[in-house]
Simulated scan of single mutants.
Amino acid sequence: MNEFLIVGGGVIGMMTALQLADAGHGVTLLERGRCGREASWAGGGIVSPLYPWRYTRPISALSRWSEGFYPELALRLLEETGIDPEYRQKGLLYLGVEDEARAMDWAREVGKPLERVDADFLYRKEPQAAPGFGDALWMPTLGSIRNPRLGQALRARLAAMPRVTLEEDVTVTGLRVADGRVTGVDSEQGRWSAERVIVCGGAWSAGLLASAGVELPVRPVKGQMILFRAPPGLVERVVLLDGRYVIPRGDGRVLAGSTLEEAGFDTSTSESARASLRDSAIRIIPALADCEVEHHWAGLRPGSPDGVPMIGAVPGLANLYVNAGHFRNGLVLAPASTHLLVDELLGREPIVDPAPYRLG
Rank of each mutant, 00 (worst) to 15 (best):
D306S: 13
R328H: 12
L300Q: 11
G299N: 08
V322I: 11
L341W: 03
P309C: 12
L341Q: 03
L300H: 12
A324I: 06
V332W: 07
Y321W: 15
L317M: 05
P305A: 06
I284Q: 10
R348E: 09
S304A: 15
I282G: 08
I311A: 06
G325N: 06
R328Q: 15
N329D: 14
L346A: 09
L320D: 10
S337L: 00
R283K: 14
E292R: 13
H339F: 05
A334V: 00
P305H: 09
G316A: 12
A313V: 14
W297Y: 08
A324K: 04
N323V: 07
A313L: 08
H326L: 10
L340Y: 01
E294G: 11
S337K: 01
E344R: 12
I351V: 13
D353W: 01
E294K: 13
R328T: 10
L288N: 09
G330H: 08
D290I: 00
A313G: 04
D353K: 00
I285F: 07
V342G: 02
L288Q: 13
V314I: 10
V293P: 03
E292I: 09
H295A: 13
A298D: 08
A334Y: 02
L288V: 09
L346Q: 05
A289F: 00
G312Y: 00
R301Q: 12
S280K: 15
I282S: 08
V308S: 09
M310F: 15
R278K: 14
P335S: 04
V332F: 11
A287T: 06
L277S: 11
Y321G: 03
P302D: 09
L333N: 05
I284E: 08
V308Q: 07
L300I: 11
L320A: 08
G307L: 05
H339V: 00
I284R: 10
A287R: 14
P286S: 13
L317W: 10
N323D: 11
L288H: 07
L340G: 02
L341F: 04
P309S: 12
L333I: 04
A313N: 01
G347V: 03
D306P: 00
D353C: 01
S304L: 08
G330R: 04
R348N: 11
L333Q: 11
G325V: 08
P335K: 00
R301C: 12
N323S: 09
I285R: 07
A318S: 15
N323P: 02
D290F: 11
H296W: 11
V342D: 04
I285T: 07
E292L: 15
V352A: 03
D279F: 11
W297S: 12
N323M: 04
D353H: 01
V314C: 06
P286A: 11
C291T: 02
L333E: 03
G330Y: 01
S304N: 06
P315Q: 06
P315E: 01
H339T: 12
V342F: 03
